[in-house]
Deep mutational scan, measured.
Amino acid sequence: GKELVLALYDYQEKSPREVTMKKGDILTLLNSTNKDWWKVEVNDRQGFVPAAYVKKL
């Protein structure tokens, strides 16, 4: 099944490779191999968020 993460904080994208999320959002985790930036999918968009801003559910 898909792995989900919870947004712990708001995050505003700073580049086209990133995505914006709001605290409390549930996101689909696509890739967590990089310890600093995790790739997630939110609202049919894929991009990176800081790993410290999310936690695995």
Rank of each mutant, 00 (worst) to 15 (best):
K2I: 13
E18V: 05
D36A: 12
L57R: 04
Q46P: 06
V54C: 14
K35C: 11
Y9T: 07
T20N: 06
K56A: 08
K22C: 11
V49C: 03
N34R: 10
L29C: 07
K39Y: 15
Y9F: 13
L29P: 00
L4H: 09
R45Q: 08
R45A: 06
E41L: 10
D10I: 02
G47W: 04
G47A: 04
E3P: 12
K56T: 08
F48C: 12
N43V: 12
K39I: 15
L8V: 08
Y11K: 01
Q12F: 14
V5M: 05
R17C: 14
P50Y: 03
K55D: 06
K56V: 12
S15A: 09
D25Y: 05
G1Y: 14
A7F: 01
L8W: 04
V49I: 09
G1F: 14
L57V: 11
E3N: 11
D44V: 06
E3V: 14
R17V: 11
Y53N: 05
P16E: 12
L29R: 01
T20V: 03
V5W: 08
N31Q: 10
T20S: 15
G1D: 13
E41W: 08
G47R: 02
R17G: 14
S15M: 07
A51Q: 06
E41D: 07
P50V: 02
L27C: 10
W37K: 03
W38M: 04
G24K: 02
E3C: 15
D25L: 05
L57W: 09
E13W: 06
D25M: 15
W37Q: 03
Y53G: 06
K22G: 05
K14N: 11
R17Q: 13
K55P: 01
G1C: 15
L8C: 08
D25W: 13
A7V: 10
F48I: 07
A51L: 02
S15K: 07
W38V: 06
P50Q: 02
D25C: 07
V19Y: 04
K55M: 15
K14D: 06
V54M: 06
Q46T: 12
K2V: 13
Y9K: 14
E18N: 05
D36Y: 15
A51M: 05
R17M: 13
D10V: 02
D36C: 14
V5D: 01
M21L: 09
L4I: 09
P16C: 09
V19N: 04
D25F: 05
G24E: 02
V49P: 00
R17E: 13
A7S: 06
L29M: 04
Q12C: 12
L8S: 03
G1A: 14
V42I: 15
P50C: 04
K14R: 13
K22N: 08
E3W: 13
L27I: 07
P16S: 12
S32G: 11
Q46C: 10
A7R: 01
L29Q: 00
V54A: 03
T20G: 08
A52D: 09
S15H: 13
Q46L: 08
A7Q: 01
V19M: 13
V42S: 15
A7L: 02
S32E: 15
N43E: 13
K2A: 11
N31D: 15
K39P: 01
S15C: 10
Y53T: 07
K35W: 08
V42K: 15
T20F: 05
D44L: 10
S15L: 08
T28P: 15
E41I: 09
E41M: 12
Y11D: 00
Q46I: 14
A51C: 08
F48V: 07
T20R: 06
V54N: 00
I26N: 03
T33S: 14
D10F: 05
K23S: 07
E13G: 15
Q12E: 15
Q46H: 08
K39E: 14
I26S: 03
K2C: 14
Y9H: 11
L8P: 00
L27H: 03
L6P: 00
E3M: 14
L30V: 11
V49G: 01
Q46K: 10
G1P: 14
F48A: 02
A51E: 03
K23A: 12
V49F: 01
D36Q: 12
V42R: 15
D25P: 01
E41N: 06
K55T: 14
S32C: 12
V40L: 04
T33K: 11
K23I: 06
E18S: 07
N34G: 09
A7N: 00
K14Y: 05
K39M: 15
Y9E: 10
T28W: 13
R45M: 07
V40H: 00
L4Y: 15
G47N: 01
V54G: 01
K22R: 13
T33A: 13
L27N: 01
W38G: 00
N34L: 09
K23V: 07
R17W: 15
F48E: 04
V40K: 00
V5I: 08
P50W: 03
F48H: 05
V49N: 01
E13F: 07
L4W: 15
W37N: 02
L30I: 15
W38K: 01
D44G: 15
V49T: 01
A52S: 14
D25T: 08
V49K: 00
P50M: 03
T20M: 04
T33G: 10
V42G: 15
K23Q: 09
P16W: 10
A52K: 15
F48D: 04
S32W: 11
E41K: 09
N31P: 03
K35P: 14
N43T: 10
T33E: 14
E18P: 05
L57K: 04
L30F: 04
G24D: 06
G24T: 02
W37I: 03
K39C: 13
D36N: 14
K2W: 11
V40N: 00
R45I: 08
T28N: 08
K2M: 12
D10K: 03
G1R: 13
T28Y: 12
A52M: 12
L57F: 09
V54K: 01
E18M: 05
V42N: 15
V5Y: 09
N43L: 13
K56G: 05
E18F: 07
V42P: 00
D36F: 15
A51T: 06
K56R: 14
E41Q: 14
Y9S: 08
E41A: 11
D44N: 13
Y9D: 07
D44Y: 10
V40A: 02
K56L: 14
D10T: 07
D44I: 06
M21H: 00
G47E: 02
T28A: 10
L27K: 00
L27T: 01
K56Q: 09
G1I: 13
E18Q: 11
L6S: 05
V49D: 01
K35I: 10
L29V: 06
V19W: 05
Y9C: 13
E18Y: 06
K23T: 06
K23W: 03
T33R: 11
Q12M: 13
G1S: 14
Q46D: 07
S32V: 07
S15N: 12
L29E: 00
K55I: 15
T33L: 10
K56I: 14
D10Q: 04
Q46F: 08
P50L: 04
V42Q: 15
Y11T: 01
R17L: 13
V54W: 01
W37S: 02
S32L: 05
K22A: 08
K39F: 15
L30M: 08
N31Y: 07
P16R: 10
D44A: 10
S15R: 09
L6R: 09
D44S: 12
L4C: 11
K2N: 10
Y11C: 02
L4T: 08
G24P: 00
V49Q: 00
N43Q: 13
V54I: 08
W38Q: 01
E18C: 07
L6Q: 10
Y11N: 01
W37P: 00
P16H: 10
K2Y: 13
V54T: 04
L57H: 05
W38F: 07
K14G: 08
G24F: 05
V49R: 01
D44C: 13
Y53M: 12
Q12V: 14
K39A: 08
Y53C: 11
N34C: 10
L4N: 05
R17K: 11
Y11F: 08
E3I: 15
L29S: 02
D36H: 15
T28K: 11
G24S: 03
P50K: 04
L8G: 02
K22T: 09
E13H: 09
